[in-house]
Amino acid sequence: MAKPPLRSSVTFLIILGVLFLGMQFLRPELTNPPVKADLQAPPEVKQILRNSCYNCHSNETRLPWYDKVVPAYWIVTSDVTTARQHLNFSELGSLPPAAQKAKLYEAVNQIQLGAMPLPAYTKVHPEATVTEAQLKVLRDYLAPASLTTPAETATANEQYGKWLPNGTNLTQTHLSPNGVPFLPDYKNWKAISSTDRFDNHTMREILGNDIAIKAIAENHINPWPDGTVLAKVTWFQQPDDKGFVHAGAFQQVELMERDSRKYAATGNWGYGRWRGTELKPYGNDAKFDAECVGCHTPVKKNDYVYTMPIAGQGKGQSQ
């Protein structure tokens, strides 16, 4: 049997070593900008966030030596940049309290669904894993399901008074900036679930078009068939004096339209959101939906859909 000459393998290793050393000089800059408005929270909450999140999601990044070695350093730098864009605890304190809470709820949900800290990150940094006990501390901090503060009944009444005689009077095409069309017939679709969102004092009905309803009846919901459209209609919670909560002012309607060709770049779904009774399309440009995709990625293995449709669709007559 012919063995490879020893000399050539040594040369090969030397070349590798030189390349490795040379690569160390290709270092994108990763700085810690000043901490402007750090999140204010109880110490036990802060400690968990600092331990598991702050290394990427703050301006207080502290890299262990092995993260400073290229190519690991390249991955870390890119991850930290993306992480800070999405959520930066060093700046979170500057947002209005409700927006801060919303970010924290999203963070807890990302943790709970196993999306954060990134599984690839906890493999190398097991100490960043959020334990069940720590998750409970975070949930308990957010949990007090504060009773909804009475919303402006007048606003809801005025909105209802204007809507009733006119219904939908769209004068424009109302395309979402990413090209997803508004479908005014959403209100006639069938309900597949509802949610009481105590995290932001809203309530929602989730509706599905005929393709969606058929898919649920046949249990073909992962993946959902192309042509599926899901609508989420959101109202502000309107409590009455007996503590009973009614659907108050209409906030928005959101659509998820499945088309594996048209929306291949966003996980086969097109996302759109229309706000207020004037149905103002949400988002400044076509890329606005990165926000939608980001929030839906933790449920990627469920074809990006959060809603668990109520079973029994398609059973029973309709009239």
């Binding site: 709970q112 669904l113 196993g114 209100k187 006639n188 679709w189 069938k190 309900a191 679930s193 509802s194 009481d196 309530m203 009905e205 509706l207 649920i216 249990n219 919901i221 992962n222 209609v233 109202w235 919670q237 009973f244 909560v245 009614h246 659907a247 933790p298 449920v299 293995k301 469920n302 074809d303 668990m308 449709p309 109520i310 079973a311 029994g312 669709q313 059973k315 029973g316 007559q317 309709s318 009239q319």
Partner: peptide, 30 residues
Amino acid sequence: RVATRPNNDAALTGDLPVNPLQWKVITSAI
């Protein structure tokens, strides 16, 4: 939590004359 499944708990099982889920939503409350 992510595993695909319908919400079987909430299914309307029994002898209803019609399945209201086949109708349209008027409003909701909590």
